[in-house]
Design a protein around this nucleic acid. Structure first.
Length: 369
RNA sequence: UGUCCCGAAGCACAAUAGGUUGUGCAACCGCCUGUUAAGCGGAGGGUUGCAGGUUCGAGUCCUGCCGGGACAG
């Protein structure tokens, strides 16, 4: 097997673990910054690393369109191409089945898209999704799945789940690369029966890791949290569990409490570019006029480069002046914030004080429950 | 000094033969969950330079003044 996963300790359902990959070790629970187009937007790999990131994401759909997965393979693979030496997980394009819905058609054979770049047809079969990710050379690849939006009628939700299971099997059959792990994705929306069915079927196929997909697609946080624990509990304890696309800091606490090991989300980078900074006191919208003369850093006790060097007033100025350094610095802080949050979570689990750790933070964010 | 043109939101400007003023940007506020997103949305903000007149009704027409500009002397 191309990765090795060990659970180092537990605190309730929360797990403290370690994933060993060909490009390095990942301590879990972990947050993975999103680098869709072979870049964590706005940050150099060195900055991403210094922010505390252990592993980052890339995207099948975006990279196969541009520059092309074969081009990247020819140039030595994704790690070398983007100069990120650590582990990489690539998403399969399954999320684009959801987000590019207006221009796609899905049947058992494939998901067919219109390229958002030039309108060309993109024919994404499970086999092609695997081949692309093998060309990219990521450490962890994801099966192609179908991710229906919240509110999808249960008849169709079942169809999507069955298709996701069949596609997972085809992905596993197609997958050959020995230095890459292929994870399967559990779908089923907020329907616990469907989730259980999907989890059981995928577990029977024996993947090295499992993801929970189809969350944060329009359901309420309460609905999501209610489905997390029961679904995670059905997955093998000796395989990493990855909650895709989630989420807000409090969502991550809920995920960890449910036994999730890996998270990714665009929020720290997207919100950073859009002038919103994550802090222990909640989000700081740095464009707001109240920061015009604010000499404080984003967070007084944050050890990140941004908080050690720049005032809120300066960051405020950068955004009003539309300087590109503003998005960069807020992205840097936000990634560091998420990584520091997960480091705190790991330590809390080791000390068997996760609930206490979570309660303090939820209270600060006004999410106490 | 004379003739002509122009004065409308912080700024730049729209406003059909007179019919209760709009747009962009700025400023202000909010949103963003496996990135089609350095993006999207919302609200505020004007006695239309001043004073008269014509008219049922004037940003719009008439007179005067103030301010800016062009040309001529």
């Amino acid at each position: 097997m191309s990765i090795r996963f060990v659970v180092l300790g537990n605190d309730g359902a929360a797990r403290r673990g370690r994933v060993e990959t060909p490009h390095g070790v990942v301590e879990t629970p972990v947050f993975m910054p999103v680098g869709t187009q072979a870049t964590v937007k706005g940050l150099t790999p060195q900055q991403v690393r210094e922010a505390g990131a252990q592993i980052i994401l890339g995207n099948t759909y975006h990279l196969c369109l541009r520059p092309g997965d074969e081009v990247i393979a020819e140039l030595g693979g994704l790690h070398r191409f983007m100069a990120w030496e650590g582990p990489i997980l690539t998403d399969s394009g399954g999320f684009q089945v959801y987000s590019l819905a207006p221009t796609r058609k899905i049947d058992d054979r494939a998901a067919v898209f219109r390229s958002h770049i030039d309108g060309a047809l993109v024919d994404l079969t499970p086999e092609r999704a695997v081949a692309i990710q093998e060309n990219l050379g990521s450490d962890i690849a994801m099966c192609l799945d179908e991710c229906p939006p919240h509110g999808t009628p249960s008849e169709y939700l079942r169809i999507a789940v069955e298709r996701t299971i069949r596609w997972a099997e085809r992905c596993r059959t197609a997958h050959k690369r020995p230095d890459q792990a292929l994870f399967a994705i559990v779908q089923g929306g907020t329907d616990l029966e469907l989730r259980a069915h999907c989890a059981r079927a995928l577990t029977a196929l024996d993947f090295p890791g499992y993801a929970l997909g189809g969350f944060s697609v329009g359901e309420t946080a309460t609905q999501m949290v209610a489905a997390l624990g029961p679904t995670a509990a059905l997955l093998p304890v000796d395989r990493p569990r990855y909650l895709m696309g989630v989420g807000q800091p409090w969502d991550i606490l809920a995920g960890v409490r449910s036994g999730i090991d890996m998270f990714d989300c665009v929020l720290p980078t997207r919100n950073g570019r859009n002038a919103s900074a994550f802090t222990d006191e909640g989000e700081v919208r740095i464009r707001n006029a109240c920061h015009k003369r604010d000499l404080r850093p984003l967070e007084s006790d944050c050890p990140c480069y941004v908080c050690r060097h720049f005032s809120r007033a300066y960051l405020h100025h950068l955004f009003l002046a539309k300087e590109m350094l503003g998005p960069t610095l807020l992205s840097l802080h936000n990634v560091a914030f998420y990584c520091r949050l997960l480091a705190g979570i790991r330590q809390a689990i080791e000390q068997r004080r996760f609930d206490e750790f979570a309660a303090v933070r939820l209270a600060r964010w006004g999410q106490s429950s």
